[in-house]
Amino acid sequence: MTTDTHSKTIFGFWVFLMSDCLLFASFFATYFVLHQGTVTLFSLPFAFTQSVVFLISSFAAGFFGDKHKTLALLGFMFVLGALFLSMMGYEFAQLVQAGTSWQTSGAWSAFFTLLSMVGLHAAVGLLWIVVLMLQICFRGITPSTSRRLACLKLFWQFLNIVWVFIFSFVYLLGAQYG
């Protein structure tokens, strides 16, 4: 029964992530239609640092082991994830202060929304990490917590892949115009 649930859940979660890909694809497509070389205002080194922070947090997800190690790694992921999210918030604040917001133009609407979608996913991920840490704290590594860990790992690494695309196509390509 449990192995069955495990394989169903992992498979179902994969399918969900693949459909989530389509969500990001829609926002990406929108961004490419609307941006037309007008989104130029960000600092590349800052975005690079942000990407590295996020990628390291995902790297941590590869080493889940016994209870204590897993808890420590989850805590590490949480801190880096929160840092990533705050950096995104900081960048948004900088942009708004400089006078560009999502209301400025269609291109900026697409930029802010695309990034916010990653932000939203990351925020959900952070909440998930907290809940999972509490579960592991009280129940240890059980079949159900390890199943959730596996899903979290998939989720976080999927988000990282999406971020790699964002860094390449929004930031690197955007830097060209800058």
Partner: peptide, 22 residues
């Protein structure tokens, strides 16, 4: 298909709620 719908409706909602220009 349905994630495309979700994304599209989100964009239209943003246009109406927070003044984006999709």
């Amino acid at each position: 298909a349905f994630q495309v719908l979700t994304a599209t409706l989100t964009m239209l909602s943003f246009d109406r709620l927070i003044g984006t220009h999709f």
